[in-house]
Computed example of a mutant assay.
Amino acid sequence: MEPELPQPPPAALGTGAVARRLGVSPTTLRSWERRYAIGPAHREDGRHRRWTPGDIARLELMCRLTTQGVPPSEAARVARGPAPGALAPVAPRAEAATPGGPRALRLGDVRPECRGLARAAVRLDAPAVEELLAGALAELGLVTAWEEVIAPTLHAVGRKWASAGERYIEVEHLLSWYVSSALHRFRPAPEPVRTPPVLLACTPGEQHSLPMEALAAALGERALPVRMFGAALPAAALCEAVRRTGPRAVVLWAQSRTTADAALSRTVAGIEWGPRGARGHSALLLAGPGWGAGSPALPARAERLFGLRSGLSVIESVVAGPAAGAAAGPAPATASGGAGPAACGS
């Protein structure tokens, strides 16, 4: 009979990996260790923190308790007690229905970075939200971070408050603010000389501008000239901007059917700009779920965008195509794949 080999000890994680998993900032973890003695059992070379599964379980319990409103000092006292698995449940029985407690967001199968961001947002932990967003954008790139981390979290927040009355709106506002701030930190590459811009705007009455902010940042990264007009641009101002800038494309965002103004889309599609004898048209691209099935008849020249990545490809093809002029025909066909995370859900 062969002797039984000893099992290797469970892998320990560094502070950064634990912070991403729990949705807190590394600074918060170090603060908890210093103030409440919630720290790792082991350090490599006496300096680098290495968190074992037991350490992480205690941190998870502390995060759950603080999310439920327990003061950090009391949450730490409970977490430092017996092994977390042996503790009596602190939250009501409803917690069992949703992993992470009744306040947790339902996310489905998502990246760990998404779960961490959601946990931080629900706790209203602004420093952690800011740090997690910066990390996701730096490590994954803008497009992947938007489609696989930011948009799913915004969707989940939107579903949560829609099903909970007026609750969780503060979570949506905080998360939206820090997402917008993170997107505004992207510095666009220098614009090519004499290249017509892409004009981005939300329809009148539409306040949800985050998807257009993400698109503006992504176009800027690609050195594509962009003019971003943000939320709820009045119809007359939009038409005047088209005439003044002669854009290669106009992207109109509508989050809901109530803000998807088909009459305005027809007006924009018919605008001509440029000197007499050399009039041009802009490609009209409609983005957002508001333009979906059941919306009023749209102009023949308008095309739909689906998701940030495929939308960027469409816009790049429009910009790279023949210059719009008097002989401009229908706008180039868009990608026809299934709708991606086009709506931010905020």
Rank of each mutant, 00 (worst) to 15 (best):
M1I: 07
L5G: 00
P10M: 02
P10A: 09
A11K: 11
V18L: 03
S25V: 01
L29I: 00
E33L: 07
R35A: 09
R43K: 14
R47V: 12
R50S: 08
R50I: 06
W51V: 07
T52N: 04
G54K: 02
E60Q: 13
L61Y: 05
G69K: 00
G69S: 06
V70Y: 03
P72I: 04
P72G: 01
P72C: 04
E74N: 02
A75L: 02
R77K: 02
G81H: 04
G81D: 09
P84V: 00
P84M: 03
A86F: 06
L87K: 01
L87E: 06
A91F: 07
P99N: 10
P99Y: 11
G100H: 10
G101S: 11
D109V: 13
R111Y: 14
R111I: 10
P112F: 15
C114T: 15
G116T: 14
A118K: 10
R119K: 14
V122D: 04
A126W: 11
P127H: 12
L133K: 03
A134Y: 05
W146I: 02
E148F: 04
E148H: 12
A151P: 02
A151K: 01
T153P: 09
L154A: 00
H155T: 12
G158W: 05
G158H: 03
A164H: 10
E166D: 13
Y168F: 14
E170D: 15
E170H: 10
V171I: 07
L174M: 13
L174K: 04
L174H: 07
S176T: 01
W177M: 08
A182S: 09
H184R: 14
H184A: 14
P188I: 10
P188W: 00
T195I: 08
P196G: 12
P196Y: 08
V198E: 05
L199S: 06
A201R: 06
G205W: 12
E213A: 12
L215G: 04
A216P: 05
A218Q: 00
A218I: 01
L219C: 05
L219K: 04
R222C: 02
F229Q: 08
A235K: 14
A235W: 09
A237V: 11
R243Y: 12
R244E: 15
G246D: 11
P247W: 04
R248P: 01
V251I: 01
W253S: 12
S256A: 15
T259L: 12
A260T: 10
A263T: 13
S265L: 06
R266K: 00
G270H: 06
I271T: 07
W273F: 15
P275S: 03
R276D: 11
S282C: 09
A283K: 01
A287G: 09
A287C: 09
G288A: 00
P296W: 03
L298T: 07
R304A: 13
L305H: 03
R309G: 08
G311H: 03
V314Y: 03
E316G: 10
E316K: 08
A320S: 11
G321W: 02
A328C: 09
G329L: 07
A331S: 11
S336E: 14
S336K: 13
G338L: 15
G338A: 15
G340L: 14
